[in-house]
Design a protein around this nucleic acid. Sequence first.
DNA 1: CTTAAATGTCTATTGATATAGACAACTAGA
DNA 2: TCTAGTTGTCTATATCAATAGACATTTAAG
Lengths: 239, 239
Amino acid sequence: MQRQNGVALWRQIADRIRTSIADGNYDREGKVPPELTLASEFGVNRHTVRSALAALAEEGIVRAVQGRGTLIERKERINFPISRRTRFTQGIGDQAREKEGLLLASSQETPSPDIAGRLKLPAGSKVIRLETLRKADRRPVSRASSWFAANRFGGIAEAYAKTGSITAAFEAFGVKDYVRAVTEISAVHADAQDLADLGLSPGAIVLVTRALNCDMDGAPVQYSVTRFPADLVQFTIEN
Amino acid sequence: MQRQNGVALWRQIADRIRTSIADGNYDREGKVPPELTLASEFGVNRHTVRSALAALAEEGIVRAVQGRGTLIERKERINFPISRRTRFTQGIGDQAREKEGLLLASSQETPSPDIAGRLKLPAGSKVIRLETLRKADRRPVSRASSWFAANRFGGIAEAYAKTGSITAAFEAFGVKDYVRAVTEISAVHADAQDLADLGLSPGAIVLVTRALNCDMDGAPVQYSVTRFPADLVQFTIEN
DNA sequence: CTTAAATGTCTATTGATATAGACAACTAGA
DNA sequence: TCTAGTTGTCTATATCAATAGACATTTAAG
């Protein structure tokens, strides 16, 4: 545990306690060890631990009760499988009771060279961009920007808004099936937009996927960049 | 950009500049914009930007030259493909000139229930654990703990130490080929061990993979937990 | 050589972070 | 009811983080 590194001690400790909770280290008790115990474990003052626990309480992970202790409210990470047949809603499965897909915005635009290349679009083509937010049990779990060829998928925004599902929207355009061709995964610190969209606090980690879906003829149909809160989500690749 | 959140402004700015560099936003110039420009972009004092740049200089990403500007020393992320035939050294390919695999430690031990389950070991079995560090161009790119069934792979530590390659070590035990069955990916803040092993600074992000390799008969041969510095590595899954 | 544009260094001030200690308030169990 | 164990609140002090301003030093271009 160090100081003078731009990350406050209480935040480093909050991160470690959050990880411990996610790893199930305190399952036996259902609560976090007493503040004085944590303080001596981490070698810091009790007040510093209190700051860390206050931050976790703010996130809804723990709840302090005077006289009893600090109870764990939520602990598990959602597991998100990635495969040739990656489907968001199916992937979440029964890991959450309530699942929502919200369309935040849509627009038609001229694609950047990168996106035109990924979708293999001829020069001068237009794309439709969808900005979507997905929630599981009312917590945001992903924030995606998706691009589709405008000439093939004009009106996909309305189809998505109606169903809340990409798979269903594709069906309306005659794409009965599609497969995940490539997925790139990286991790970065949350930016200002993430803090707002995903309800995170500064210093939080965001997992970023860049994915290309193709139809059964191998033609690219969707390119998306999706951001997930790392404290809530992990990926599984099954080959 | 916020204060009072446990993450110093200069570190948030350092993270954003690092990302900008990795995204190639400053490729045209080969250097970062002037301190005063960055300060007004981020809406902070020049001294705060200087702290951020000092941190990036410490990481070897930039180098400030009085009178000229702040030059970019290193920018690209290493891309690490994950597939059924995931191989570390092959995966890095020509993205780095020098590649090293170091054996830090090895031991024989009784597996935790989790690891025994992953390797499908009968009760009472022993495992061999290998602690390895891999470098590309002399920078640490991964720190792995791997477990192997002791009765089948006794002596694999020596084989790995000699070759610096798991693939080569397996061949010595008659495993001519193996495939990646499952990979889990998550992201966490670097812990004290990461800071030391991977040469990171607090607040840095670590990508964690938990992977199971099986031989051609489908029998598990290796389970490993590997930690990668997220500022240097990304993953690609090709299906 | 002169100048503009950078980075480097110094002083000073304010608010956030961390430590330390003391005591109040609440809970559960003996 | 009493007590041990726990969280809640308060005061005080030292260090770090951020802002502000001034000026020095170096580089590259005119």
